[in-house]
Write a protein that binds this DNA or RNA. Sequence first.
DNA 1: CTCTGATGGCTAC
DNA 2: TAGCCCTCAGAGT
Length: 305
Amino acid sequence: MPEGHTIHRLAGALTELFSGLRPTVTSPQGRFAQGAALLDGRVALPAHARGKHFFMPFYDEPGSVELGEDGPDWLHVHLGLYGSWSFDGDEHFIADETIGAPRRRIGEREIGADGTAGVWNPPLPRDTVRVRLEQDHGVADLTGPNQCRILDGGGVREVLRRLGPDPIRNDPGDREQFVALVRRRRTPVGQLVMDQAIAAGPGNIYRADCLWRVGINPFRPGSRVSEARLGALWDDLVGAMREGKRDGIILTNPPEFAPEDPLDEVDRRFAVYQRSGRPCWRCGTAVAEADMAGRRLFWCPGCQR
DNA sequence: CTCTGATGGCTAC
DNA sequence: TAGCCCTCAGAGT
């Protein structure tokens, strides 16, 4: 599920649904019992996302804080490969970003014995739910995170120090920094794009499809890709990942190549990702697949130079 | 029912 | 590079 666009989207959703409130925080699974007890009943402040990392500060009074500020206790979540948040609540518990979320249930009300609509009741959590945030109108359940812990401001800043520029933010200087970081390495550029110290947020899909979109061969050493082409790659990551955040889905096959009647979801959505053996949309060459540093890499040997 | 793989990343060797 | 962590849908038996 989660490349960086998902985390930014979740930060928006959890901010909209919980910030300013004092959610009940529990750990149905038990593995975050101590952390949950520390956060329970305190004010959730607006959340932050950097790359694939999610941070939500909890404090004693409402407001908002800069990412990594001292004072609040920071809930830090990394979803890893298959962590996810799911939502359930009544019609008041809805954020743009929760639409399309897994196991989303909205507006379901129990029917009272007298036939009138009752109030929403929180569903029993699955026993793998690491954290449940609950307010009067709904719950957010976190399952399967790679990391879920409480940090102080210094702990947050330590995480941030290991992260490169985030294309979804695209702060001033980020583009130049990305280009410089790639060009000082001889590692294949396809590997560098997935290195969170070089760009924070892109995962296997954006790596494959954005390299295809700008025509870069993923095996080319970073030091041997021109500044101009790396700048174009950064710009493409910015555009593609912002679209992904907005739409809640990765759709990286450019419209001009989208088939009328796609064979399947993969052909509809992707350029080369998971399309090994199928013809390149641009040049017809069969899309290739290889292992790169333990992850599946997809590319077109015909037009990615 | 068992097995597999997935949009991630850390640590140890 | 291998092993490990986290979960579960979907495929195979």
